[in-house]
């Protein structure tokens, strides 16, 4: 039990996919124009990550070595398409906002990376926990980045404006702000958690 808790918490800080492993940069930068968008993208990735991790750990022993990458990609793509269909049906507004970056979860290196590095060698439940941990870590980083950009750029928190209708520093909602914010957050993360470095 405690082992599984460790798997989950490990993804949050020690193996944080965004700030430590530097994976999945594209959706991290593109979808974090607000905290809500970052959160939705994180949860979407979490969904695919957990399910594909479980499925892959279940079928891994039966997959011949040479075709394991194509098989994993097909499995991941299936879950992504499933997610696309579900989101179109039940959360069409969010689907529209995140747009292209939902299908692009397929090529998010986090998902394939976890399948390859963890799920293919571990049991179904452990893989699910690993998926939850890494997915939550990703969700957390995206929400934080989205929150910072929203506060600086739009002057609001989760859509609640504290500037009374005035504009924030728009650059932070636009492309340059994404890169710069992520850079500075990474510095902060390094300072807080990797003191020995």
């Amino acid at each position: 039990m405690s082992n599984r808790m460790k798997l989950i918490s490990g993804g949050l800080v020690k193996n944080n996919p965004t700030f430590v492993l530097l994976l999945g940069m594209c959706p991290t930068l593109a979808t974090t124009t607000s905290a809500i968008n970052g959160l939705s993208m994180g949860l979407a990735t979490l969904f695919v990550l957990v399910l594909s991790n479980m499925a892959i750990s279940a079928i891994a022993p039966a997959v011949p070595d040479k075709v394991h990458i194509p098989v994993y990609i097909v499995v991941i793509a299936t879950f992504v398409t499933l997610l696309q269909l579900l989101m179109q049906a039940f959360t069409p507004a969010i689907y529209e906002t995140l747009g292209l970056f939902i299908p692009l979860i397929v090529v998010n290196c986090i998902v394939l990376g976890r399948a390859e590095a963890f799920a293919s060698k571990n049991g179904v439940l452990d893989s699910a926990c690993d998926g939850i941990g890494v997915g939550l870590g990703f969700t957390l980083s995206l929400t934080v980045l989205g929150l910072v950009r929203e506060i600086l750029g739009a002057g609001s928190i989760f859509g609640w404006s504290f500037l009374g209708g005035r504009d924030g520093m728009l650059a932070f909602v636009l492309a340059p702000g994404a890169f710069i914010c992520l850079g500075y957050l990474m510095v902060l993360f390094n300072k807080l958690f990797n003191k020995e470095k």
Binding site: A175, P176, I180, G183, Y184, N190
Partner: peptide, 21 residues
């Protein structure tokens, strides 16, 4: 020290993106 590697690269890309805007 904390900026070494990727962080400073990201900040640089940010400025580059501003130029492209």
């Amino acid at each position: 020290k904390s900026f070494k590697g990727v962080p400073i690269a990201l900040v640089t890309v940010g400025i580059l993106a501003m130029a492209f805007m």
